[in-house]
């Protein structure tokens, strides 16, 4: 079932100085996101990823074309808050999206804005915190948490609002490797176990490999789309778009160039190890 749809959407920022042309950040993008899908958007700096996902929950409104969430159009102001509730968003900087001075109060923030009853807020906050494994920090000040923990609090804040879609703009860019894993494991679990639709913008290829589908943006348009395997199989194109190819794919590419018949494009270290063992047993 389709849950989010961008129809030939364009967006531009006002010109930085008078006399200069407006910055066309997103150009005629069409995209359909299915319920339960894990979609990943890639692209090098300035390709319009952040702008595009801000169009998906109505933080920005399209210059032309349309964005629909379920049956609602994001330009329909009477449903702005319904859309924000259905489509939650996590930002890059964990510090700049936490509003309150106590973890549980921050998780409650969205629900308070929605006008939910206090007892129901309490229930949902406790549940959301336990989902992201942050219950023991409920009464703490967010400023003492690690980056990964802060992002998990932010995720809890969105989860408590019972969203259908989770938009994330480079949520792990400012985290250390362990924080990155912490956040990505949480997200993957929410997607697989709770059927939450995820749209993730990232620069990390190992995160992109976890997705069901990849979209690569370039100069405001989607230029490449498909499963991670399909996309990364086009090694040369991917490199030309300024992206890294996952190391195992790179390796199998080189092995093939050396005349070794690697089969099935192994992408993870485990897959590669198996394939190499198979090749070795054939010798």
């Amino acid at each position: 079932m389709e849950i989010l749809r961008a129809n030939d959407v364009s967006f531009e920022y006002d010109a930085p100085e008078e006399g200069k042309p407006a910055v066309k950040a997103v150009k005629n993008v069409s995209l359909s996101v299915q319920q339960g899908e894990f979609l990943c958007i890639l692209g090098h700096n300035g390709s319009g990823k952040s702008t595009f996902i801000k169009l998906l929950n109505g933080l920005y409104l399209p210059k032309s074309g349309s964005v629909t969430v379920g049956v609602w159009d994001t330009t329909d102001e009477s449903h702005t808050w319904d859309i924000r509730q259905k489509v939650g968003m996590i930002f890059q900087n964990p510090d700049n999206q936490i509003v309150a001075t106590v973890v549980e109060e921050d998780v409650a923030f969205g629900l308070e804005n929605m006008g939910v009853e206090p007892a129901e807020i309490r229930r949902r906050v406790d549940k959301a915190l336990s989902t992201v494994n942050m219950t023991e920090y409920a009464k703490q000040s967010p400023s003492r948490l690690s980056g990964g923990q802060k992002q998990r609090v932010a995720i809890a804040g969105v989860l408590a609002m019972k969203p259908d879609v989770l938009l994330m703009d480079e949520p792990t860019a400012m985290l250390d490797p362990s924080g990155r894993k912490e956040v990505m494991d949480t997200v993957e679990q929410l997607n697989r176990e709770k059927g939450l639709t995820v749209v993730l913008v990232t620069h990390f290829m190992e995160e992109a490999m976890r997705a069901d589908r990849l979209c690569v943006m370039e100069k405001g348009s989607i230029v490449l789309e498909g499963t991670p395997r399909e996309v990364f199989a086009q090694t040369e194109t991917v490199k030309a778009l300024g992206l890294d190819v996952p190391p195992m794919l790179e390796l199998s590419e080189r092995l093939k160039n050396d005349g070794i018949a690697v089969r099935g494009d192994p992408m993870t270290i485990e897959e590669m190890a198996q394939e190499l063992c198979r090749l070795k047993s054939e010798i």
Binding site: K54, N57, L59, W81, R84, Q85, G88, M89, F91, N93, D95, N96, Q97, V99, E104, E105, A108, F109, G110, L111, E112, N113, M114, G115, V116, E117, P118, I121, R122, V125, G157, V158, M161
Partner: peptide, 27 residues
């Protein structure tokens, strides 16, 4: 100022629209 910009967006994304009809977790 950057933080203020970010925070304003984050608050809007979480349905913040002023004090009207806002409830509180702790009464």
């Amino acid at each position: 100022f950057r933080r203020a910009d970010d925070l304003a967006l984050a608050m809007e994304a979480r349905c913040y629209h002023g004090g009207d009809r806002r409830t509180r977790m702790k009464e």
